[in-house]
Amino acid sequence: MPLGEEYPETREGNDVRLTGMLSFEKRRERVAWLFAGPATLLLIATLILPSLTIFIFALTDWQFGQSAVRFVGLANFVEYFSDPQSRQTLINTLVYVAVTVTGSVVLSLSVAVLIESLPFGRTFFRAVYFLPVVSTFVAMATVWELILHPTMGLLNISLRFVGLAGYDWLHDRSTVMPTLCLIGIWEMLGFNMVLFLAGLKAIPRDYYEAAEIDGASSAWSRFWTVTWPLLGPTTLFVVVISAIRAFRVFESVAVLTRGDPGGASDVLLYSIYKEGFGFLRIGYASAITVIFLLTLLVLTLVQVRFADKKVHY
C-alpha cells in the first residue's frame, strides 16, 4: 500500500519543480537581456544615432558655430545636383571606382596566379606587392610626388629620355584623374592579391588534375575551366570590397591634388571634407554624406544581387 500513498507527494514535488522551471525561463530571459544590453547600447550610441543625426543634419542649413538652425527640406540635395561642379565630384568618384576596381581586380588576379605558379621566391613577391597596404599612403605620397613632378619627376625624365614630352600629371585636367586611378590601383593591388592567393589555395588540386585528364592541357584552358569559375566567390568579395574602398578615395586627393585643377580631381569624400571642415557647412556636408552612403548602398546591393546567383554553386 505505501506505494500508492506516495504518488500525491511526488506529484506535489513535480509541481514545485515546474514552477521553479518557469521562473527559471524568465530569469534566463532577463540574464540574456543583461548580457546583450551593453552591446546594444554601444551599437545605438556609436552606429545608429550618428547615422540618424547625419540624415537629420542633411535637411538643415546648420553651419558650425551658428546658433540658429533652419529646417530646409531637400534644399541641400537640390543645390548639390544643380551645381555642375558638385556633379563633377560624383562623376569623378564613379569613374575612379570603375577604373580602379577593374584594374586592380584584373591585375591582382594575374599577379596572384603568377606568384602561385612560381617555383621559388613566392614569399618575396607576396611581400613586395603587399608593401603599399602596410605603409600609410600619406607617407608614400612623397614618393609619388617625386615620380610625378613635372620637371624633376622620374616619370617625365624617363619619358624625355626616350624622346617623349611629359605632362604635369597632377595639374593637367586631362591627366589628373587617370593618374589618381593608377595610384589607386597600385594601392589596392596588394590587398586584393592576398585575397586571391587565399582563394587559389582553397581550390583542391584534384580539379586541376581532372581538367588535365579531361583534355585541358594548357595552363590557359585550365585557368578558364577550373581557376576562374572556382574563384567566383572570391572574385565577388574582392570586387565588393574594392568598390567600397575605391568609393572612399580621399587620401591621394587630399595629399596630392586637393581636388585641383578647378575641381577636375574632386571626389565625394573630399568635397564632404571641404564643405564640412573647410567651410563648416555641416548641413550641406551631411547631405553629400547621405548621397555618398546611398550610392554605396545601391552599388553593393546591385553587385551582390547580380553576382550572387552566378558565383555560388
Binding site: P204, E209, A210, I213, G215, S217, T225, L230
Partner: peptide, 29 residues
C-alpha cells in the same frame, strides 16, 4: 601528358566541377 594518354581517372573525391551541371560535367572531356 595525361590528356594524350587516352586514359580516364575517377578520383577519390570525384572532382566534379561544382559550377557545372551534371550534363556539362560529363561533356567536359
Amino acid at each position: 601528358g595525361p590528356a594524350e594518354r587516352d586514359i580516364a581517372l575517377v578520383f577519390q573525391s570525384y572532382a566534379l566541377y561544382p559550377h557545372l551541371t551534371v550534363a556539362q560535367n560529363i561533356a567536359v572531356p
